[in-house]
Amino acid sequence: MEEIVDSFFNADIAASAMPIVIDGLLNTILLSLMVVPLGFLSGLGLAVMAQSKSRAVRWPLMAWVDFFRAFPPLVLLVLLFAGLPFAGLELGGFTCVAVAFMLNNSAYYGEILRAGIDSVPRGQIEAARSTGLSGAQAMIYVVLPQAIRNVMPDLLSNTLEVVKLTSLGSVVAVPELLYQARQAQSASFSPTPIVMAAVIYFLILWPLVRLLSRLENRALAGRG
């Protein structure tokens, strides 16, 4: 037992690894603050375009969404990071994460927001248009606020996944939380830094998980 505590929860190693791990945490936060808005906004763009009546617009969008639902984000990331240099384009780990996640998340956020827009009754747009609001104004002031509220649990759930996904940055040497913890681990030959990273992820994300669990229970109960 003592041995296990000594290797997984070693106070000395934790103390010396702390600055490195905290550094990683800051980068994880930075990365999240970048990829969440990027993914949300590009998803919003897709969702609005998906309202088009033209199949020539909707079908490619659906293909785009299905493609990224089928494609593992890590493969996309490696493709950009290890593949693009062969085309003379070296983007660096940070940019690769940003681009890969923007593509991947545009599909996920887009699908959620499309469902949200669909959930707003048609009469809302008609009422808005009948008072002279343009299509864009009706979308911005009337439809989107309701759409976003209707799918808030799904949006939050996806945001949780996006934040967790930033840990993939460690594969392409972005110094985020997991990467830094692994650096500290290989320097100290102890799993303690990885346990630290896990505890930090848990502490940061637990409130969101709790909130989601409540919202999801309520949502499903409402449908039953």
Binding site: F8, L160, K164, L165, T166, S167, L168, S170, L178, R182, Q185, P191, I194, V195, A197, A198, Y201, F202, I204, L205, W206, L208, V209
Partner: peptide, 15 residues
């Protein structure tokens, strides 16, 4: 649900 899957994999494999 809070932990990234990659963190769990790394924890099991290296820890």
């Amino acid at each position: 649900r809070s932990l990234p899957p990659l963190v769990i994999i790394v924890l099991l494999y290296f820890g």
